[in-house]
Amino acid sequence: MSSSDRRRFLFLSAAVLLGGCGFTPAYGPSGGASQLQNRILIDEPTDSDSYLLVRELENRLGRAQAPQYGLSLALTTRRESMAVTSDNRTTRYNLLGDLRYTLRDLGTDEELTSGRVDSFTGFSTTGSTVATRAARADARERLMTILADRVTANLMAYAARLPQ
């Protein structure tokens, strides 16, 4: 079997399998996630981390134009020393983030779903002061991106059960 025949066989097999299991693209015509697009009013950020998080969520879900749902966020972050030299200098940190979220109906103020996601990123402190600050800022931004991805995935999974 030639390489192009294998690819065609795999593609057709995948199409048959996914079609038979009821798979629908999240943002497709009958996908539930389209109900979320531009309809979630996210609570205003209170600090630089929550600003980054809200920015990432709005990039994924759109900015609320006709809000039907409200998304409340409770973010906590902390820094842990990971690599300490013999003279007690920390050369690497992990930045840990924990995010609790609640999606509610703005009309009834009923809680529709809630959950918790967490993750971590790391950064090194072995460079100059400027390099360390840049690495810390980059780690914070990466952490907020990861948390936003996880919340978005959870909301997309729930979207099919949203009231019409």
Rank of each mutant, 00 (worst) to 15 (best):
R63L: 07
S30H: 14
S114N: 15
T152H: 05
R92K: 09
V130P: 13
L96Y: 13
T152K: 02
G115F: 00
S86M: 14
L36W: 02
G127W: 01
R136G: 13
T91E: 04
S128V: 05
G20D: 06
F120A: 14
T152W: 02
T108C: 03
T85P: 01
P25S: 13
L75Q: 00
Q164G: 12
R150Y: 07
G22F: 02
N59M: 06
F23G: 05
R60Y: 03
L162R: 05
N59K: 05
I40N: 00
L162T: 04
D105V: 07
R78L: 11
T125A: 06
G19T: 01
V151R: 00
R136I: 15
A157D: 11
G22Y: 02
L18M: 08
Y93R: 02
A66E: 12
T152C: 02
R92M: 09
T145H: 00
T132H: 10
D109T: 08
G19P: 01
V117S: 02
N59C: 05
I42D: 00
S34P: 10
A131N: 06
L106Q: 06
R6V: 13
A134C: 09
M1Q: 09
R92G: 08
Q68R: 13
S13E: 13
S48A: 11
R39D: 06
G97F: 02
T108R: 04
E56V: 00
S124G: 07
L103Q: 06
L96S: 15
L18K: 08
S50Y: 02
G70S: 02
S48W: 09
Q65C: 08
R150A: 07
A148L: 03
S2D: 11
R63P: 08
E44P: 08
T24H: 15
D47N: 03
N154P: 08
D98W: 12
F120K: 11
M82G: 11
G19R: 00
F123L: 01
L18G: 07
L99C: 03
S13I: 14
I146E: 12
Y69F: 05
I146R: 12
D138G: 07
S30I: 15
R104V: 14
L96W: 14
S3F: 12
N94Y: 12
N88E: 14
D87H: 04
F120G: 11
Y101A: 03
S81Q: 10
Q164I: 10
A26E: 04
T102A: 09
R79K: 09
M82S: 11
Q37G: 12
R92F: 09
F9I: 10
P45C: 02
A15D: 09
R150V: 06
T129K: 14
